Simulated assay, not measured.
Amino acid sequence: MKNILFIFLFSIIYLGGYTQESPSIDKEKLFDLYQTQRYAEAGDYLKGAYGDETSDLKALTQIGYCFLMAGNNVEAEKFYAKAYALQPQSLPILFSLANISTKRGNSAKAKLFYGEIAKIDSNNFNVFKLLANLYTQDSVKLVYLLKANQINPKEGDVASDLAEVYSTYQDYETAYRVLDVAIQADSENLVLQRAKLPIANQLKKYSEVIASGERLLKDETDAAVVKDVAKAYYFTKQYQKAINLFKVLESLAMQNEATLYYTALSYRGLNNLTQSAIYTKKTIDEAVSPNISSYYVLLGLVYQENKQAKLAAGAFKKGLQFAPNPTLYYRLAILYDTKLNQQKTALTYYKLFMKSKPKAKDEKEEIAYTEARIAQLQSK
């Protein structure tokens, strides 16, 4: 390994093709800086030797490489840009500039450089893979992933990303075929096997999901795999097995509205209506945002400020359907008391406010006002 490193560094330092006009370079010093990975020092040394205004292509790329390896992207870009001006169709220079632009968060420049590479080498797998990663729009991403996949359909990362895009378009058949080709080339790729499960479920290949998923679960308890296998058990009417796996998700606090819903359906399939009702309620609770009653408080206040008292009352009452909220009771009491002139109804909501145990620290003034107002209304 040391011999290989020595030959590599020797080729850079001694066979770099420097012109006869090149300044004197202490090759042993440079070799030592490379060998000990002191790239920043190597870059500064070469920069000092050649100067900022050098037009030596190989010197520019070597200095740029040193700074790139040192993490100094600003200096690296400066020297690679000069090299690019001298040789605009050099793939290594274009790749370096694109890489630097990506690291610096300038996706637009990276796209331009990678685009130039694609024009020069239309069969360069890496450039299309990298271009795909720079786009968030599925339609554009699809174009580059397709090209990369056509060049190398066995590469797992591209196959997985391409299948994901096809899935967003609900083209599950194509997504399945893309993954199948990659899996045949790498049957031990667990990432690809996991990616295939939800797609196979969509295609109703439940036996495959169960067989593949159970093998994956022997490797580790992956929540996504558990969910896919559990759904496959449900659709094949193996309700108890489905419930057992859905319960695993609950033990991991990884349940969601969908998994609770399927649990309720599975209990119903077993005619265990008590548990089915319990999980149906859990599904409803999971589906409702814990903040929704607060949203109705805001909506009611907006209506009230706009002098739409009846709409405000409706919003406050709607909020109570989701969760008891002391603020909603108080707002309804005030609304009926001061805007709608219905003191009897207001008294009811004042009492409900007090029964809802408002926090004394946060609602001290509201509590004091409510106690006084209840006494006044009851004395009438």
Rank of each mutant, 00 (worst) to 15 (best):
A83M: 02
G105Y: 10
L197P: 03
C66M: 07
K2P: 03
V127I: 14
C66K: 03
P88L: 03
A49D: 06
V74W: 07
L91T: 05
A70Y: 03
A59I: 00
L301A: 06
E28A: 06
T221S: 05
Y350M: 06
A323V: 08
K119G: 01
A148H: 00
N106M: 08
K204L: 13
Y114L: 14
N124C: 05
Q89E: 05
Y350C: 04
T174N: 09
L340H: 09
R331T: 04
Q184M: 10
V229F: 06
L130Y: 13
D157P: 02
Q342Y: 15
L298Q: 12
I284T: 09
K380D: 15
A224I: 11
G300R: 04
K82C: 01
Y296S: 12
V288Q: 13
L30K: 04
Y329F: 14
N189K: 15
K357G: 10
S160Q: 08
Y267L: 01
S90M: 00
K310E: 13
Q35R: 13
S160A: 14
S90N: 04
Q321H: 06
L328G: 02
L142H: 03
L68H: 03
K119L: 11
K196H: 12
Q37S: 14
V140K: 07
T102G: 10
E365G: 05
Y172Q: 05
I4P: 06
I13Q: 13
Q255K: 06
T174R: 01
A368H: 06
A108K: 06
A182K: 04
K344F: 15
T174L: 02
K359E: 13
N152A: 12
M354G: 07
E164N: 15
F10R: 08
K141N: 09
D138C: 05
K119Y: 13
S187H: 08
